[in-house]
Nucleic acid binder design. Structure first.
Length: 346
DNA sequence: AAAAAGGACGCCC
DNA sequence: GGGCGTCCTTTTT
C-alpha cells in the first residue's frame, strides 16, 4: 500500500524509521564515495588524525557538521538522541549505549534497544564513511592519510581540496608554511582565529534550518545539480545508489558492475524524487513511466532476467573511488571529475 | 494488488 | 524538442 497521491503536502519530510529526516540523512551523505558501509576497520590510520584534531580537515568539515545535524535532529525528535561525543568508532559497540534514556525520560524496551543498535550503526556509518572519504581524498591527492606526516605542500593540497569540496573561501594563506603536525596540534579556537571566514562558513552549515529544504539544497549543491541543469531521473537514482548507507533501504545495487539495481521501496523512492523535483504528487507509477522512457533512449533497461522493480543502467561506467560507481555516461560529470583530478594530482 | 508496458497529452525549460 | 509529469488502458506477476 503506497502513499496515496497528493497526501504528501509540499515540504513534508519523510522520516526514516530511526527518526532522522531525509534532509539530515542527505546532509550526512554529501560528498561520500560509493563503497559499501560497515567496513571502517581499514581506515584506522585516519582516526589518529581526528584525535589529533586537524581542524581544517575533511573530518572537521564533515564530521562536526554531521554531528551537529544529528544532534539537531535528535533535539527535534526526543526519542532519538545521538550525543556528539560518541562519534568515535567503538571497539565494543554492544557495551556503549547511544541513547541516554534516563535523560530523555524513556524506558529502554526491546524497541529502544533496537533503536540503539540502529543509531550505533548510523554512527559507525557516518564515521566510517567520513574516514573513507578522507582516505579517498588522500589517495587522490597522493598524500598519506595520516596528517601528522604532512609537509607544507601536503597541507596546502589538502586545504585546496577541502576548499573546493565545500566551497569554502580560500584559507591557504592562513596556513602557509604549516606542516601537518602544526595542524594536528591546533585547537579549534586557534583554527577559528587563523581563519575566521572558514569558521563562519562552517558555522553557517551547521546552523541550517532542518524544517526547510536546507539539507536538500546543500545536498543538491554537492551533487548532480551543481551543473545548474535540472537533475535527470537517472542521475537522481544514481545518487541514491551512491549513498547506500542512507538509501539502501529503498534502492540498492544488485550488481553494481552491471549497473543492475533494485527499487526496494517504490513509494519511498518516488517520494524522494517528488521532493527533489518539488512534485508532491509524484508516485511510483509516474516515476516508473519516466524510467520506461529511458528504454528507448538506451539509458536504463530491464535486465535480461526481468524482475519486479529491478532495472539496469545500460552503460555502467567505473569511476572515482575505484569502486565502479559511475553508471552512466555524463560528459559534464566526467569533465569536472577529470578537471578535479588534474587540478589536485599535480 | 502491485508492477510493467506504453500511448497520449500537456507543461516547462 | 527534450524531459518529464500526468492520466490512461492493458497485460503480467
Amino acid at each position: 500500500m503506497s502513499n496515496p497521491e497528493g497526501s504528501l503536502s509540499e515540504g513534508t519530510e519523510y522520516r526514516s524509521p530511526i527518526g532522522m529526516t531525509e534532509d539530515s540523512l542527505a546532509v550526512m551523505e554529501r560528498n561520500r564515495v560509493s563503497r559499501e558501509p560497515w567496513d571502517i576497520e581499514e581506515t584506522k590510520p585516519c582516526v589518529e588524525g581526528q584525535e589529533r584534531g586537524v581542524y581544517l580537515s575533511c573530518f572537521d568539515m564533515l564530521l562536526t557538521e554531521d554531528a551537529t545535524w544529528l544532534v539537531k535532529v535528535s533535539e527535534a525528535s526526543p526519542a532519538v538522541a545521538v550525543p556528539m561525543y560518541r562519534m568515535e568508532p567503538q571497539e565494543e559497540p554492544e557495551q556503549c549505549p547511544v541513547i541516554d534514556s534516563q535523560e530523555h525520560g524513556l524506558s529502554p524496551g526491546l524497541e529502544g534497544q533496537e533503536e540503539e543498535r540502529s543509531l550505533e550503526q548510523v554512527q559507525s556509518m557516518v564515521v566510517g564513511e567520513v574516514l573513507k572519504d578522507i582516505e579517498t581524498a588522500c589517495k587522490l591527492l597522493n598524500i598519506t592519510p595520516d596528517p601528522i606526516e604532512w609537509n607544507t605542500g601536503n597541507v596546502q593540497k589538502w586545504l585546496l581540496w577541502t576548499e573546493h569540496l565545500y566551497r569554502l573561501p580560500h584559507a591557504g594563506k592562513a596556513f602557509m608554511d604549516q606542516i601537518g603536525k602544526d595542524l594536528c596540534a591546533m585547537s579549534e579556537e586557534e583554527f577559528r582565529q587563523r581563519s575566521p571566514q572558514s569558521a563562519w562558513m562552517k558555522e553557517r552549515c551547521s546552523v541550517g534550518d532542518t524544517k526547510t529544504t536546507a539539507g536538500e539544497d546543500l545536498w543538491s549543491e554537492a551533487d548532480s545539480s551543481c551543473s545548474g541543469q535540472p537533475i535527470h531521473l537517472w542521475q537522481f537514482l544514481r545518487e541514491l545508489l551512491l549513498k547506500p548507507h542512507s538509501y539502501a533501504r529503498c534502492i540498492r545495487w544488485l550488481n553494481k558492475e552491471k549497473g543492475i539495481f533494485k527499487i526496494e521501496d517504490s513509494a519511498h523512492v518516488a517520494r524522494l524524487w517528488g521532493l527533489r523535483k518539488n512534485r508532491p504528487a509524484m508516485n511510483y507509477d509516474k516515476l516508473s513511466r519516466s524510467i520506461r522512457q529511458y528504454y528507448k533512449k538506451g539509458i536504463i533497461r530491464k535486465p535480461d532476467v526481468s524482475q519486479r522493480l529491478v532495472y539496469q543502467f545500460v552503460h555502467p561506467v567505473c569511476g572515482r573511488g575505484g569502486g565502479g560507481d559511475r553508471n552512466l555516461p555524463n560528459p559534464e560529470d566526467k569533465l569536472s571529475h577529470n578537471a578535479l583530478e588534474h587540478r589536485f594530482k599535480t
